[in-house]
């Protein structure tokens, strides 16, 4: 029988296994590739602890420097909005928490659906706004590659399909849910091969930046205003 329930069972079964495999193996390959490249020890005399500088940079880099906030408020504010709302939509929706709990055995309380729903809408609006900005800003238009647009689409689809599924916008529901899960699987599959990897490598990048530049900083670093 060729129906939406079959489709749902397929995306929750074999398709999910394939996506999970590519996601996990892909990330591991990428991370190991990076780590094994290694880096030379810095022989210059450090002014302050590079470990502390590394940790500081991992944390501090989330706070925009005031000058750049004034120069590019759109990217910063919408970027913040996007990340927070995406985080809420993904990590604080109970059906999602169930999946994480099933996969990793960890669980936490979710948010009421209206909040998650609102967050998802804001996340989608910010993504759309960023796409329009990307099309129009001279720098972003110039540096954007096909990958940027592909990643945009693959990031947008789970939100859109999730929103439709949550609101039962189309029938049957099993098809909507299946499409939603499929779009997430697409996200998982391209994740290790695109800039989506920044979710993981951002920690490494900030760390390396911190240890190489931070060791030159005075020990009692005042917080950048």
């Amino acid at each position: 029988m060729n129906n939406s329930m079959d489709f749902l069972l397929w995306v929750k079964g074999p398709a999910f296994e394939i996506a999970l495999f590519i996601f996990v193996a892909g990330i591991l390959i990428r991370v190991i590739e990076i780590l094994l490249l290694g880096r030379k020890a810095d022989l210059s005399e450090a002014r302050s602890s590079d470990v502390r500088a590394g940790i500081r940079t991992v944390l501090n880099r989330s706070i925009p420097e005031s000058g750049i906030l004034k120069k590019a408020p759109f990217v910063i504010i919408v970027g913040y909005l996007w990340h927070i709302c995406w985080f809420i939509s993904f990590f604080l929706f109970v059906p999602h928490i169930e999946v994480i709990n099933y996969l990793l055995g960890i669980s936490w309380p979710g948010l009421p659906n209206q909040f998650v729903d609102t967050a998802a809408v804001i996340a989608m609006i910010s993504l759309l706004a960023m796409l329009i900005y990307r099309f129009n800003h001279p720098v972003l238009r110039f540096i954007s590659t096909r990958e940027d647009y592909l990643v945009w689409l693959v990031t947008f689809l789970p939100l859109l399909s999730g929103y439709f599924a949550f609101h039962h916008t189309f029938e049957p529901y099993a098809m909507l849910l299946g499409l939603h899960i499929l779009s997430v699987e697409l996200f998982l599959v391209i994740f290790p091969f695109t800039k989506l990897m920044h979710v993981i490598t951002v920690l490494m990048a900030r760390w390396y930046n911190g240890v190489s530049l931070g060791r030159k900083e005075p020990e009692n670093q005042e917080v950048q205003s």
Binding site: I34, S144, D148, K195, M204
Partner: peptide
């Protein structure tokens, strides 16, 4: 010249333009 930091940096760029 390519080492772990370079690889981590390129892997992380999201083309935000900042």
């Amino acid at each position: 010249q390519i080492d772990a930091p370079v690889a981590a940096f390129f892997s992380s760029c999201v083309h935000c333009g900042l």
